[in-house]
Design a protein around this nucleic acid. Structure first.
Lengths: 349, 349
DNA sequence: GAAGATAATTGGAACGTTCCAATTATGTCA
DNA sequence: TGACATAATTGGAACGTTCCAATTATCTTC
C-alpha cells in the first residue's frame, strides 16, 4: 500500500485546479483566492501529500534547499553536542534541517562528508574544522558560493566567516583570579599544542602571569588530549613535579573534570587542596561537585549565534566573511576555593 | 565566479560523449569501456563537477536518496550523543549522510522534524521517540514504506523495528550484585515513571528484590528527571527517609553521577559510604572518580547496530519489523564499593 | 565475408516541482 | 455598455539526472 507518491498534479486534479495554482498555494502566495486556497489545502491533507523538496530544489537555486550542514570534530565532547543543539534550535525554527556529521578529527573523513553534503545541495555549512584543516580544503566550497561559518577553530587564510571565543581574555581572567587568591604556581593543563586555540589560550596564560608579576615556568604547561582522560593524565604528570602547582587553569571543562578525578585519586580535594578552573561552561559544570569555576562560552548560545550568522549570509545571497570573537566571562564556583566560596559551602552544611 | 553549476551535459560535451555515458560512469557501470571511463573521470575532476543527488533522486526511488534521519530526544545527554556517533560511523561508510534533529522531548517538534525529513526524502529513520509518542504519530511514515527503527524506547502498537536494551535483566543484575554485597535497603533512583523504560527497569528491580528475599519498600523508589540534576534531587529526597537506603541503582548514568554529587554534598563518600550503580556506561563512567559501576549498554555500539538494522531494511526493500533486545552486562567498578574493589583501591594508593 | 552475438554508446522521455508569459474572470468607472 | 485595470488562474518549458529502447561498433564463427 501507499506505493506511488501523491504529486502536485494529483492534488490539482482532485481539487479541480491547475498544478500551477497548487504550487502557488504551497508557497503561500498572495495571488491565490482564499476559497481556492482552502479547497486545495483540504485536498492536500486528505490525500496525504508530501512536498518533494528535491524536485523543487532542482528548479530553484541551491540556497533554497533548506538544508544546512554542520560538521564537528568531536561530538562525544558535550561542548560540541550542545553547540549542535544550539544550531539545531534556530535552524529548525527557520524551517531548515541539519546534516550533522562527526569527523573525529580526521581531515579525510571531513573531506568526504563535506563532499557528500555538497552533493545534497546544502545552503550553508557550519564547521568546526578537524585538526590540520587547511584553507585549500575549503576553497572549492567557498568558490561555489556556499556560505561557511567556522566555529571554535579558525582556518588560517580561508575566506570564510568565523565565530570563536575570546580565548586570550578568558584564560587571562582565570589566571588573574587565581593569582588574586594568592596562588603562585599555576599550571596550564591539557589541549593539543598544535592548534590555534591552544596557542591563544597559552598566550593568555603567559601574559596574565607577567601582568601579575609571576614567573612563567614551562614545566607548568602540560599538554594532553582535550578530554577527561587527558585531564587525568595531565594532572598526573603535573603532580610529579618537584615543585607542585597549587592551581591549574585547564584547556577546557572536560580536562578540568579529569583533573578533579585525578586529584581525588591522589586524595586531594579539588577546590580545597588544589584550585581548578575550566573553559567552556558545559551544563555539568554547574551540577558537578565541586561546581566548576570556568570561563563561560555558552556553547548552546554559540551554536545559536553561528546559525544566525549563517542564515543571515544565506539570505543576503553573497555576504562577505566576518570574524566574530565572542566575549567570555569567568564564572566563579566552588572548584577554585575562593574565600567567598568557602563561606558559601560552610553555610550549606 | 563559479555561479552556474557544471552538469552532466557539460561533462559529456567536454569529453566528447553523450550524457548517458557520463551517467553510466557516475554509477560505475561495467558497461562502459575503460578508456572512455578514464577520460570522463578526468574531465569530471578538471571541471570540478559536483553530483546533484536531488536531480538523481527525482528519477530514482526514494530509497536511494542516501539520507537517513536520526532524531533523538536529548542530544545533551552524552548517551544520545554517542549513539549518534555510532550511527554516523556506519551510515557514513555506507555513503549515506544523516539528518540529525533533537526534539528535547517535544512531540510537536518531533512531528515537525519528521515531516521535514520526509519532504527531503529520507531513505529511513532512526528514532528515539519523545515521551508521549504514539503509534499514530508514525503511521503515515510507515505506510509510505520508509523503514523506521526505534531505539532505546519502544512505541506500543507501532509496526516498526526496535532496538532496546534488556532493561529488566540489567537492573536485576545490579540489584542482585548489591544484595550479594550485603545491602538490604536498596533504592531505585531517577527516571520519569510514565515511560516504558522506567517500568521495565522498575520491574527488574522489584523482581530481583523478591528473588533475593528482600522486602520491596515503595518509598525507596524515587523518580526524577533522568539527568544529573535529577539525580541530585533524588538522592536528596532519599536521604530524608527515616530509614535511609545504603545503596541505589539509578535510572541511568547521568542520574548516578548526580547521586554521587549529592552524596558528596552531604559528606558521604560514594563507593565507601553508599553504593551506587548506573545504567548505560557512558564514556565518563570509566574515568570518573569513583569509577562508576554500571549496566553497560554500549551506546555507540547500539547506534552502530541500529544503523546496520536500518540499512538492512532499506536494502531489502520491504522488510518486516523485528524487535531486538540487546543484551547487557554489569560492569563492576569502584562506585559500589565491593570488597575486591576496596582492595584494588588500596593497592593504588 | 555474411550472419549472428556481444560490447559500447546514445537520444529522448520521465521524475515533481517552479517560473514565466499568457489567458480568463472580475471589478470599476465614465 | 464599452474600455480598462486588476485579480486569479493556467499551460508549457525548464531544472539535472536516470532508464529504456534503439543504434552503432566490434568480435566470433562457420
Amino acid at each position: 500500500m501507499g506505493k506511488e507518491r501523491v504529486t502536485v498534479i494529483d492534488i490539482a486534479h482532485a481539487a479541480g485546479v491547475s498544478k500551477s495554482t497548487v504550487s502557488l498555494v504551497l508557497q503561500a502566495s498572495p495571488l491565490v483566492n482564499e476559497v481556492t486556497r482552502a479547497k486545495v489545502n483540504a485536498v492536500i491533507r486528505e490525500l496525504g501529500y508530501v512536498y518533494n523538496r528535491g524536485a523543487a530544489n532542482l528548479r530553484q537555486s541551491n540556497s533554497k534547499s533548506k538544508i544546512i550542514g554542520i560538521v564537528v570534530n568531536d561530538l562525544t565532547n558535550s561542548f560540541f553536542a550542545e553547540l549542535a543543539v544550539g544550531v539545531d534550535m534556530v535552524v529548525q525554527s527557520a524551517g531548515y534541517v541539519q546534516f550533522l556529521a562527526n569527523t573525529a578529527e580526521s581531515v579525510d573523513r571531513q573531506r568526504e562528508v563535506i563532499a557528500s553534503m555538497r552533493e545534497h545541495g546544502i545552503s550553508g555549512l557550519i564547521l568546526s574544522p578537524a585538526r590540520g584543516t587547511e584553507a585549500a580544503d575549503l576553497k572549492s566550497l567557498v568558490a561555489s558560493g556556499i556560505p561557511v561559518v567556522n566555529v571554535v577553530r579558525q582556518v588560517a587564510g580561508a575566506k570564510v566567516s568565523s565565530l570563536v571565543s575570546d580565548n586570550h581574555a578568558g584564560v587571562s581572567a582565570a589566571v588573574r583570579h587565581l593569582a588574586g587568591l594568592g596562588h603562585h604556581r599555576i599550571a596550564f593543563l591539557g589541549g593539543f599544542p598544535d592548534t590555534a586555540v591552544f596557542s591563544e589560550r597559552l598566550q593568555g596564560y603567559r601574559d596574565a602571569l607577567s601582568d601579575m608579576d609571576l614567573a612563567v615556568h614551562d614545566e607548568l604547561v602540560v599538554s594532553s588530549a582535550p578530554s577527561r582522560a587527558g585531564g587525568v593524565a595531565a594532572i598526573e604528570r603535573a603532580l610529579l613535579l618537584r615543585e607542585r602547582p597549587t592551581a591549574a587553569v585547564c584547556f577546557n571543562d572536560a580536562v578540568a573534570f579529569g583533573v578533579c578525578d585525578g586529584l581525588r585519586a591522589h586524595r586531594l580535594d579539588p577546590g580545597e587542596d588544589f584550585a581548578v578552573i575550566g573553559f567552556d561552561d558545559v551544563i555539568e559544570a554547574q551540577t558537578a561537585v565541586p561546581a566548576l569555576t570556568t570561563v563561560s562560552v555558552d556553547p548552546q548560545g554559540m551554536g545559536r549565534r553561528a546559525a544566525q550568522l549563517l542564515l543571515k549570509q544565506i539570505n543576503a545571497g553573497r555576504a562577505e566573511a566576518e570574524a566574530i570573537v565572542s566575549s567570555v566571562r569567568l564564572v566563579v564556583r566552588q572548584s577554585c576555593g575562593s574565600a567567598s566560596d568557602k563561606r558559601e559551602r560552610l553555610s550549606l552544611l
